[in-house]
Simulated scan of single mutants.
Amino acid sequence: MAKPMTKTQLVAALADEMGADKKTAGSALDAVVAIITREVGAGGAVTLPGIGKIYCRERPSRMVRNPATGEQMQKDADKVVKMTIAKALKDSVNG
Rank of each mutant, 00 (worst) to 15 (best):
S27T: 10
L48D: 10
G41V: 00
D30C: 04
K53F: 10
S27A: 13
R59N: 13
A45T: 10
G26Y: 01
I51A: 08
E58L: 10
C56A: 14
S27G: 13
P49S: 13
G44C: 08
S27N: 10
P49D: 07
I54R: 02
G50C: 08
G43K: 06
P49F: 06
K53C: 11
C56Y: 00
E39K: 09
C56Q: 14
G43A: 09
A42G: 13
R59A: 13
G41P: 00
I35V: 14
Y55P: 00
D30V: 02
A28W: 04
R59D: 01
T47L: 09
D30N: 11
G43I: 05
D30H: 00
A45R: 13
I51T: 12
I35P: 00
D30T: 09
A28F: 09
R59S: 13
I36M: 15
D30E: 14
A34E: 07
A34Y: 01
L48I: 15
I54K: 04
P49V: 15
V32W: 08
L29P: 09
V40M: 05
S27P: 00
D30M: 05
C56K: 14
A28I: 12
G44M: 05
S27F: 05
C56P: 00
V40Y: 03
P49R: 11
A42Y: 03
R57V: 13
L48C: 08
A31V: 11
Y55M: 11
T37M: 04
I54A: 11
E39D: 10
V33Q: 07
R57G: 12
T47R: 15
V32Q: 01
I54E: 06
E58T: 14
L29V: 14
A28H: 04
A42V: 06
I51C: 06
K53E: 09
A42K: 12
A31G: 09
L29D: 05
R38M: 04
R38K: 15
I54N: 06
K53G: 02
T47H: 12
G52Y: 12
I54T: 01
G52P: 12
A34D: 11
G50Q: 09
I54G: 03
R57E: 13
A42D: 12
G41A: 03
C56E: 11
L48S: 08
V32K: 03
G50W: 12
V32I: 15
V40C: 04
Y55N: 05
G44Q: 03
A31P: 07
G26F: 05
E39C: 04
L29Q: 08
V46W: 04
V40E: 05
V40P: 07
E58P: 00
G43M: 05
A45K: 15
V32R: 01
R59Q: 11
A34F: 03
G26L: 03
G43D: 06
G41K: 00
L48A: 04
A28R: 02
R38G: 10
G44D: 08
G26C: 02
V46N: 09
R38P: 00
R59E: 07
E39M: 03
C56H: 01
V46H: 05
T47C: 04
R57I: 06
G26D: 04
